[in-house]
């Protein structure tokens, strides 16, 4: 690097220096607000610490307890894993479906694009409260409509079998945000490919399967990674509506982390929990990235 720097002419050096100076605010922010907290969490994961008194080094005890003697950890992991498995495919498929609809050349489409995007910008707490009202078993709008259709609605958030699907349903409602990203991907697909396929007599389904989907795979890959991380981080809905219940059916990992850190002030154990979640998310992302070589097609390839 030093040799490169020496070989540069003064103008190139100046440009490079300006570039590094421009990067500096981000680099400092990344160091202070990301690297240092993660580093501190790794260290604190080996301690017992209640914040107001000095941490005590306990080696691997937190991790040993987590994997061998903490049923709450396994329950939180199970519930979160289930939520990811239910909500992630639904969000990807419905987001793409919505984007395909919003990509139709119809009058007033911008209005619909805006309407479907609105849920993505509303506060999570407000959305949670709204869904509580909608899904209230006795007086909620959804069950009232079902009642008039002759269907007895479920207990939704207050039924152990329905609570997790109810939270998944809520998360699907915000699918307009990802639809906008799919839409950008769809609009980048060259129109001449469709024209050529149409001249060759390709059906709508074949055009979708052979042109749209392959050329949309970079967007799908991006969405998969983002939604995967987002699904693991589910918290607000459980915190506001169910508090992890009933019978721990919505006891998500971050809710357990929150209770451990900010209600029981068990910061050492909470740090260990955070590190384990980071490893899980990182592993899942690396796996998705590894498989992407087989199914993601870039235009330049």
């Amino acid at each position: 690097m030093l040799a490169t720097w020496r070989n540069m002419n003064p103008l190139a050096r100046r440009e490079a220096a300006e570039g590094y100076i421009s990067l500096l605010p981000w680099a400092i922010g990344f160091l202070v607000f990301t690297v240092m907290p993660v580093g501190a969490s790794i260290v604190l994961g080996f301690t017992r610490w209640n914040i107001v008194e000095p941490p005590v080094w306990i080696g691997l005890d937190n991790y040993v307890r987590m994997f061998t003697a903490d049923p709450m950890f396994w329950q939180a992991l199970k519930v979160t894993g289930l939520f990811v498995l239910i909500s992630l495919p639904l969000k990807l498929v419905l987001g793409l479906g919505l984007a395909l609809l919003l990509n139709l050349k119809l009058p007033g489409m911008n209005f619909f694009r805006t309407v479907f995007y609105i849920p993505a910008v509303i506060s999570g707490v407000a959305v949670s409260l709204m869904w509580m009202w909608l899904l209230q078993p006795d007086t909620g709008v959804v069950n009232t409509i079902l009642y008039y259709m002759g269907i007895e609605g479920p207990g939704w958030f207050w039924d152990r079998n329905w609570a997790l699907p109810s939270v998944a349903l809520m998360s699907i409602w915000k699918v307009g945000g990802s639809a906008i990203i799919y839409l950008a991907g769809l609009q980048n697909i060259p129109a001449h490919l469709y024209e050529a396929a149409e001249i060759d007599g390709a059906s709508r389904w074949r055009r979708f399967w052979r042109i749209t989907l392959p050329l949309l795979t970079p967007t799908l890959f991006f969405q998969l990674v983002i939604e995967l991380i987002d699904s693991f981080k589910i918290f607000t809905e459980a915190f506001v509506i169910t508090q992890g219940g009933p019978l721990r059916s919505t006891y998500f990992y971050l809710l357990y982390f929150y209770e451990t850190a900010f209600q029981n002030f068990n910061m050492g154990y909470a740090s260990a929990l955070a590190i384990v979640l980071m490893v899980i998310i990182l592993s899942a992302t690396v796996f998705v990235n590894y498989t992407s070589k087989r199914w993601v097609y870039y235009e330049a390839e």
């Binding site: 509580m132 009202w133 209230q136 078993p137 006795d138 007086t139 909620g140 207990g155 958030f157 207050w158 009933p246």
Partner: peptide, 9 residues
């Protein structure tokens, strides 16, 4: 009232 009633109302 049920827990749902109490929470909502």
């Amino acid at each position: 009232p049920t827990p749902a009633d109490l929470e909502i109302l």
